[in-house]
């Protein structure tokens, strides 16, 4: 009991194809990186294929975890996304059917739906 086996935990990451990122799979307990890779293959890839496999000793991983996020909700960020530009689809559809005149005046008889309010 006094003399314990001193193995390390390795986190395992795998890439399933060349266009995918490496994704965290699980972890293994191993005495060396070589052993960790052998165990990772045996434990997690008896069926599935991978193109690349990483093992990283857990104490070498730096993380931002729950404690750091706690209490910090992200503010709304519609201006960083396409969420505020949904009206464009209707505009494009309208102008396809009612092209503007060369001076920018509207086509005869048409009004544009979905105009922004500002």
């Amino acid at each position: 009991m006094d003399e314990r086996l001193d193995f390390d935990v390795y986190e395992v990451f795998a890439q399933s194809d060349s266009l995918s990122p490496h994704v965290h799979v699980f972890n293994v307990l191993a005495s060396s990186p070589d052993m960790a890779m052998a165990l990772a293959e045996e434990n997690f890839f008896r069926r599935a294929e991978f193109v690349s496999l990483w093992v990283v000793r857990r104490d070498q991983i730096h993380q931002i975890g729950f404690h750091d996020r706690e209490g910090f909700q992200k503010t709304p960020k519609a201006y960083r996304t396409t969420d505020d530009y949904k009206y464009l689809r209707d505009k494009w559809r309208y102008y396809r059917d009612h092209p503007m005149n060369p001076d920018g005046s509207p086509a005869a008889g048409g009004t544009v739906d979905g105009t922004m309010d500002d």
Partner: peptide, 12 residues
């Protein structure tokens, strides 16, 4: 076997 692996040069 476990002991030998644990003591191998690459361990730790």
């Amino acid at each position: 076997v476990r002991r030998t692996i644990a003591l191998s040069p690459t361990a730790g």
